[in-house]
């Protein structure tokens, strides 16, 4: 068929649409696997999505459990600024595939090594944001709190943590999105996720591959929107009322914070 022929373009479009239609069919209806032994697609996606989210939640949870207290303490005492700030830069320089591969090669396959590698991926943005969030609390509020007789622990829990919460949560959001995106390649370590149809293409075929890609995209974007809403919810009311800078800045600020963390 000649280049640029209208028929050729139409056919290409038809095959393009067809591929997506087949992929969507994979998502909504069970079918036999390529090798013909098992049921794939359709309701199996619930299992894969559940596993994907459980793995991601465990990883981000572990990372937050370490990074938030560490960031708060470092930020409170103003120690370790260089490390806390550069954690994100270093984290960004290590490709997610490499991180995961190092854990698989050196610790082995299975849930724990994969979860640890994803937790390590989630750690830097949460640590950096917690540190920055704690440091950006108005020095006057901190001075007043001390002057009124708050102990270090009270100062952290009653003043610094609540005021840093929106920024901490921005870090958790970035980490969460990264981890959910990266959990797509978790099957490389023999842990099932929505990436299973992508990695095990010999079982799931082209439709499974594209269908899983669609599912992962929808999941990530929905999660991103959900976490953004949650971030607004954890922002103390008194902070929302504070005079904001221009509309422009409001639009740009979350992006900027995001840019500080590992994608």
């Amino acid at each position: 068929m000649a280049e640029g022929h209208p028929l050729s373009a139409t056919l290409q479009l038809a095959s393009f649409v067809g591929e997506f239609a087949d992929a969507l069919d994979f998502l909504f209806h069970e079918r036999e696997s390529v090798s013909g032994q098992t049921e794939i697609g359709g309701s199996e996606l619930f299992h894969l999505t559940g596993n994907h989210l459980a793995l991601s939640a465990a990883s981000v949870g572990l990372a937050a459990l370490i990074a938030v207290p560490l960031g708060l303490v470092l930020g409170h005492y103003g120690k370790g600024e260089f490390a806390a700030i550069n954690a994100s830069n270093v984290g960004r320089a290590i490709p997610t595939l490499v991180l995961l591969a190092v854990f698989v090669a050196y610790l082995g396959i299975g849930f724990v090594p994969i979860m640890l590698s994803l937790a390590l991926l989630a750690l830097p943005p949460i640590l950096t944001n917690t540190y920055v969030g704690t440091r950006q609390v108005e020095r006057d509020s901190v001075d007043a709190a001390r002057g009124m007789g708050m102990t270090d622990a009270q100062l952290i829990s009653r003043v610094e943590l609540p005021l840093a919460l929106p920024i901490i949560f921005a870090g958790v959001r970035v980490a969460g999105i990264n981890v959910v995106a990266t959990a797509t390649i978790a099957p490389l370590g023999s842990v099932d996720s929505l990436g299973t149809p992508i990695i095990a293409a010999n079982v799931y075929g082209r439709d499974g591959r594209l269908g899983a890609a669609i599912a992962v995209t929808v999941l990530t974007l929905a999660l991103s929107a959900g976490l953004a809403a949650l971030q607004r919810a954890v922002t103390p009311r008194g902070l929302k009322l504070a005079p904001t800078r221009s509309r422009r800045h409001r639009l740009l600020t979350p992006l900027r914070r995001r840019a500080e963390a590992t994608p």
Binding site: T184, L210, V216, T217, T220, L255
Partner: peptide
């Protein structure tokens, strides 16, 4: 707003998925 939102949404798509979505 339209440019930053678009670029943000693009960035939000997992890379593995975007590669595969573009393949067809």
């Amino acid at each position: 707003p339209p440019i930053s939102v678009t670029s943000q949404v693009l960035y939000g798509i997992p890379s593995v998925a975007l590669f595969l979505l573009l393949l067809p």
